[in-house]
Amino acid sequence: MTAVTARPTASRRRFTGAGKPWVPYLFVAPFVLLFLVFLVSPIIVAVWNSLFSQQSSGLGFGGTTTAFVGLDNFARALSDQDFLVSFGRVALYGLVQVPVMMFIAATLALLFDSALVRGRRFFQFAAFLPYAVPGVIAALLWGFLYQPSVSPLIQALSSIGVDANLLAPGTVLWSIANVSIWSYTGINMIIMFAALQAIPREIYEAARIDGASDLRIAVGIKLPMIAPAVLLTTLSSIIGTLQLFNEPQVLKNVTANISSDYTPNMAIYAASTLGKDPNLASAMAVILGVATLIVSVVVLRLNNRTTKRASDGL
């Protein structure tokens, strides 16, 4: 992380503000202030609120009082079967959705990087177009394509004798995954493609002279060289999976098979709005935040180790 300091050669030429030491602080003040108010304090508020509870006094007369309850909200959240199941659900979802999306994105990026594709710009445009459709709109759109009454897909399937129900309890999770794959394959492809284009072409020439095939070069040279880009797009996809909200929340409107606490983020939203229990919601948000942090750190560790091994191997 600290690798992003300025180039050492430049530092001797940079100033502390031409004799006015407060100038740089003035420049960074707006960001720091906003950062403290809208990023640091929500976290503090969440942790603080998670330790309290609203309790109605007496027989329900005279409103509510706030009482310190310690880790009670955490205990309630962690003993909530549905909340725990929602974590398992997004884990299962991520185990399938992320590899599938990465496989499609990497394959497309490798094809676009090869000389095998005519009309590359058109194909790239097509793959990228869904990313320009806001996630919520994409979910609305697919929502229509999943409903038997309007969907041409289901009509087509039933005409060849397949009775598909894309919103059934067992399949709806994968229908949500499909929306994410459709939306985000393009951007991941572009990131990997950018990494591929940055590799010096001479490396392949040498391999070709040695008689390596295009496929061999793609799998044996290109993929390992963009391993950091692949692993880190994977990391952000995993984090995205844990945060899953928009797609299931929107698809909930067209099926009863998505509960209001289908994913951890939906559970937080439901506790906050339907359950009217912001304290429990705060505890859940803290739990989700910590879980996200742990997953990020684990994946980053894994990534560092892999990158090191890759560079040792070279």
Partner: peptide
């Protein structure tokens, strides 16, 4: 710089509910 890099790991949706409370 460290704070900027580190805070990129915090997804916006996770602090949405606390932000709302704030």
């Amino acid at each position: 710089i460290g704070i900027v890099l580190g805070s990129m790991l915090i997804p916006g949706t996770v602090i949405a509910q606390p932000t709302y409370v704030l």
